[in-house]
């Protein structure tokens, strides 16, 4: 009986210690990890989209909440004047979520460019969304009043042959960004105006 108690006590104390320690380490590293993810996963996509801005979009970022979800906006400036925002949307693909960075010109409300950040699609088929710029470049220049969907669904985008689901996932992500942007537009304008000053 005494052995039993000591077994339970030791295991419980050990687990509690483990949980506590990990929670502490987790809190300590959370911001740092977020920065690293930004730097290595999102930064390349943002740089591709905002290729001719004069600031560092990673520094000039702000967050807004929509339906309890925090969304990060990256602002691109030309001559110190905010010109575009970039934000990420997600669509359900074949092997999981497809992440898509979408850049939007805040004056004309048109897409500047999109770039796939994360995906786990089949190599050689769905993965072309990332490797092949022809597909994603179709979004560039589209106004936000257009329908972001593949042509079969009544939209503007030619699906990649052999990768319909991935094409749809990318469109879904773009559409999510479109809706989000239009919904939050007043707040986005307020934030960017503050940055201009």
């Amino acid at each position: 009986m005494r052995e039993m108690i000591s077994m339970v006590v030791v295991l419980t104390v050990l687990s509690a210690f483990s949980g506590g320690m990990l929670a502490a380490v987790r809190t300590g590293t959370q911001d740092k990890i977020e920065n690293q993810v930004l730097k290595f996963q999102k930064a390349p996509a943002i740089k591709k989209i905002l290729s001719n801005v004069s600031n560092d979009p990673l520094q000039d970022r702000f967050k807004l909440t929509d339906n309890d979800q925090e969304i990060t906006f990256f602002v691109g400036k030309v001559d110190n004047k905010p010109q575009a925002v970039v934000l990420e949307g997600k669509g359900k693909g074949y092997g999981g979520d497809v992440g898509l960075m979408v850049g939007i010109d805040i004056e004309t409300d048109a897409v500047i460019g999109v770039w796939v950040t994360t995906h786990s699609e089949t190599p050689g088929l769905g993965s072309r969304a990332k490797d092949n710029p022809d597909f994603v470049s179709q979004f560039s220049g589209l106004g936000l009043d257009k329908v972001f969907a593949v042509k079969n669904d009544g939209g503007e985008i030619d699906a990649m042959s052999g990768a319909t689901i991935t094409s749809k996932a990318v469109c879904m992500a773009a559409k999510q960004v479109q809706e989000l942007y239009l919904r939050l537009k007043p707040e986005i304008q307020k934030q960017t105006q503050q940055m201009a000053n």
Binding site: R26, T29, K32
Partner: peptide, 14 residues
């Protein structure tokens, strides 16, 4: 192991 995992994520992400 989890400590290492978190540390590596924070400092040597690539």
């Amino acid at each position: 192991v989890t400590v290492v995992e978190l540390m590596m994520q924070a400092y040597t992400y690539p």
